[in-house]
Design a protein around this nucleic acid. Structure first.
Lengths: 154, 154
DNA sequence: GGATATTCGGACAAGTTTGTTTTATATTGT
DNA sequence: ACAATATAAAACAAACTTGTCCGAATATCC
């Protein structure tokens, strides 16, 4: 698995938030329901994103979470550096602690180009681009589509 | 992290085996010492690779593990399918169970090319190529170089 | 056959990730 | 002030990964 569940939830949640009007805070409860993920666990993830300065959080009535910057300013790499940790970018495929151009594992020279492609993708992909894709209706954020349309129940 | 520790140990061990003469079985104990990994844990991994038909195993005196085929016939994908499980090739970055070309997550179209690059790399990289790289002396399999030269102690 | 060396297999233990529960704290509306 | 609603934080629990240990089976050598 490339990403931890924590990272997957974080990205899903932030994409969903980018599709919502930015004026009013989004409730953790609502995000969890839409994505079909455990609400208390998601809350912890959002709290850590708030500590990492990616989100604002407001307590009390009318509280909730807001993107700290516009969805065009936040890319996937920023999110994953928080959820996967700062070692995320400097990992060796074989797990060696020291694997640079000078002293490398035998996979190093083959792995570097593939890794660069992934890093470029993560840097280039902003929340706005992903939110637009979801809003187009062609793509979806969660597995059971039922959750995504519950807001039409009224 | 891209690969589990189990996968990393498995790849390291098989590369090491490919550098050894294929006539006599290689001891789990020796591999673990060379790589600096816990021997009983490595033994379980090697046993599962034997069940997956990648290795032969022999018990008793003069026992040990052998590559079932030549190092030029075994690529990294075959190993990882055993250690990471068959879902390894069909994973969605966001963790959706259903994420194909028809019904996809918003990252799908961007992720597919990067993933293909990784998959091609894993299919193309055989144990022989990696073993030659290690034998050239320019690359290394384990973190503390001390372990790699213990066989010169006599 | 007996001693020795090795994998096999399962049970066990520690650590990490994932998920739950509970309590505290802050904010708003009445 | 009080009730309602939300995040904050910490303790707890379950599941998975990683690592350890030990007895049994198997093969070789003497």
């Amino acid at each position: 698995m490339i990403l931890s569940r924590t990272s997957q939830y974080a990205v899903q949640a932030l994409i969903y938030m980018a599709t919502q009007p930015s004026a009013s805070p989004v409730l953790n409860k609502d995000i969890a329901a839409k994505l079909g993920v455990p609400a208390p666990y998601l809350a912890k993830i959002l709290q850590s994103l708030a500590k990492g300065n990616l989100l604002f959080s407001f307590r009390g009535r009318l509280g909730g979470f807001c993107l700290r910057e516009g969805g065009d300013k936040i890319n996937l790499m920023q999110i994953l550096l928080l959820t996967e940790g700062p070692m995320f970018t400097q990992s060796c495929l074989l797990g060696l602690k020291e694997c640079s151009d000078e002293t490398a594992c035998p996979l190093h020279s083959r792995w570097i180009p593939a890794k660069k492609k992934i890093m470029d993708l993560l840097e280039d992909t902003t929340l706005d681009k992903l939110a637009k894709a979801v809003e187009s209706g062609k793509y979806r954020l969660a597995d059971s589509p039922g959750h995504l349309f519950e807001h039409l129940r009224a």
